[in-house]
Write a protein that binds this DNA or RNA. Structure first.
Lengths: 340, 340
DNA sequence: TGAGTTTGGGAATGCGCTTTCCACGATAGT
DNA sequence: ACTATCGTGGAAAGCGCATTCCCAAACTCA
């Protein structure tokens, strides 16, 4: 049905080979007069190269797969935008898959991308604590066949990517908070099986310990807004009695969780930061519109995505980059006078 | 390099045809014993079908293209999530393209999707006022070749999709606001060349007129957070003098714009809603975390995306669905006592 | 038991394109 | 003037798979 290169070649009165050479970047450039004729024919017929056929013949699709946990989560959508920016106008297309936090769906996504023979796969969802052997095997064979794997967050086996130093960042964040006067911390630690949440919580707790402090509480739950909402609600219910103690500071291992926690705090009739201070992690764009301004550890999310995209283009040989976040204290952790 | 079906066939000691029949859903089912042998061989070798080759042989990729303006915008990322949900586990892969609001990039994206021979293209960015002839031509030839085009927002030529009744929704929103006591409106109308912003502004203004009211001001600008921020800032600068008049209500043609406007209002030292009320449009998830709660017209964004995804699967023959938003008044439009 | 019928595996073709490999004429070099 | 080289277009061989034929073996039924 669609116009094929053969049709264009006939229309222009040249061979298939010649048509191919003029329309697609070949090393050999046919004569100007012929080229024009072919281009005119292509234009006239409305020719579109069949990317599948090209991929088959060239053994290279210009496709890259991005797997995220949830594209509607600002953290991931910001990274996704960065990846697209990084890919720029290279003509590389982005294949998107969401896992909804289910490991099997991540494997499914990778499997699917492998079938599509994407040139690269960018994994931005958080790695699990115990690395799934099946995923590792999959990735290994993908790399053997020339596929590039870029992991955002934690390093995974022999893959390159952008590593986020969650532990150090959390330590710095804790330090900053302590310096600002906070002493009583609660950690909403998210999912204890996810590397990201574990590292962030551990870094924070370690700093506390080194300073001679210890957390008032460490609550686990889902690594999401809802998870934090529930965890925080539970926590608040559990300590109804002991009021007027010194102001509490709740460290959430992600901004999205901080938002959920704030919701829970408010619903229980308390105020942020007057009654309870809240800190997040990531500095997602959403924070710009939230009041009070939420303290957090700033990660250059869009840039991280952009780097990943650029790595794909440069065929970077498993380059690794490490980035750390910078603490940003805003109103949500302002120490309230009555609560010092 | 990668394992081919031929390799599997050899390993299993059967023909290519047989291997193909057992591994991919063919009408003919080879004998159980043979099937098992083939599957074992595939498993052992770690075989992955080459999607490009399959697409070529079958004349059907299981690909659908989604074009958005900006994937980091909650409006689009929510729709994107819906689309993925709608596609479910059908095995259909999503190709994502962002246009950054540039019409040429939209054309480029469609062109690219056509090259990829996607089974369907979902256009969710806002249509321009004057439809680009090049885009129409492209879409026409895509449809002729069996491609499905689904437009979210406004109808486009002979395409199906989910149409949003912006005008009526805006009218209802205006009505609700008037009923709640507001009388003095400013409209941040966004880009006057985009159908979406124009319709929303017009619907609102029409209702005002019918009620015997007229807008205090109509300000145009970019259809984005920044655009609204600037438009609002300008507006506020322009009327420094006339204070203590009756409370103003600013209607922004999208939630994202409302967020920008609020930022501008606050920076100029005013409060929402005490000094100025603000309404948005869309009810993006972000609003859950913003204080004060922003009044808006609720659109079932995720569902809209889901419908689009389901339409793709059902090969819906240009089905059209129309949805209208429902007004939701929250604190941002609460009438302040001192300003009646 | 023999003709007709089904069943199931294999050979071969083609999907649309890229890319050797060839052939041929033009140009250069001695 | 004759060969060595280059430049250019075309023929043809795949890329990895689905699928249409084809054919042999296993059945069916009388």
């Amino acid at each position: 049905m669609a116009i094929r290169l053969t049709d264009v070649a006939n229309e222009a009165g040249v061979s298939l080979a010649t048509a191919s050479r003029v329309l697609n970047g070949s090393a050999r450039k046919p004569a100007a007069e012929i080229s024009d004729r072919v281009r005119a024919a292509a234009e006239k017929l409305g020719y579109f190269p069949n990317a599948q056929a090209q991929a088959l013949a060239r053994a290279s699709t210009k496709l890259v797969g991005l797997v995220v946990r949830d594209i509607a989560d600002p953290y991931f959508s910001t990274i996704a935008r960065g990846v697209q920016r990084g890919l720029g106008d290279s003509g590389t297309q982005l294949l998107l898959a969401s896992t909804d936090s289910e490991p099997e769906r991540e494997i499914e996504a990778v499997r699917s991308f492998m079938s599509q023979r994407t040139d690269a796969i960018i994994l931005s969802g958080s790695r699990g604590l115990s690395e799934d052997a099946a995923l590792l095997r999959l990735i290994g064979s993908y790399q053997e066949n020339g596929g590039q794997v870029i992991v955002i967050g934690q390093p995974l086996a022999s893959t390159g990517g952008i590593q986020i130093d969650n532990e150090t960042t959390s330590e710095n964040l804790a330090e900053e908070l302590i310096r600002s006067g906070h002493r009583r911390f609660v950690v909403l630690a998210g999912d204890e099986n996810l590397l990201t949440s574990r590292d962030r919580a551990q870094g924070f707790l370690r700093k506390l310990k080194r300073t001679g402090l210890s957390a008032v509480g460490v609550v686990h739950g889902a690594f999401s807004r809802e998870g934090a909402y529930m965890a925080m609600s539970d926590f608040l219910r559990g300590r109804k009695s002991e009021e007027d103690a010194q102001q509490l500071c709740v460290f959430c291992v992600s901004d999205v969780m901080a938002l959920g926690a704030i919701r829970a705090i408010r619903e229980s009739g308390l105020r942020v930061p007057e009654d309870i201070a809240v800190v997040g992690f990531d500095d997602i764009p959403t924070l710009e519109d939230v009041t009070p301004g939420i303290s957090t550890a700033r990660l250059p999310l869009e840039e991280i995505g952009r780097w990943a995209g650029e790595m794909v283009l440069s065929h970077g040989e498993a380059r690794k980059t490490v980035v750390a976040g910078t603490p940003v204290l805003r109103e949500s952790t302002k120490l309230h006078a009555g609560n010092r």
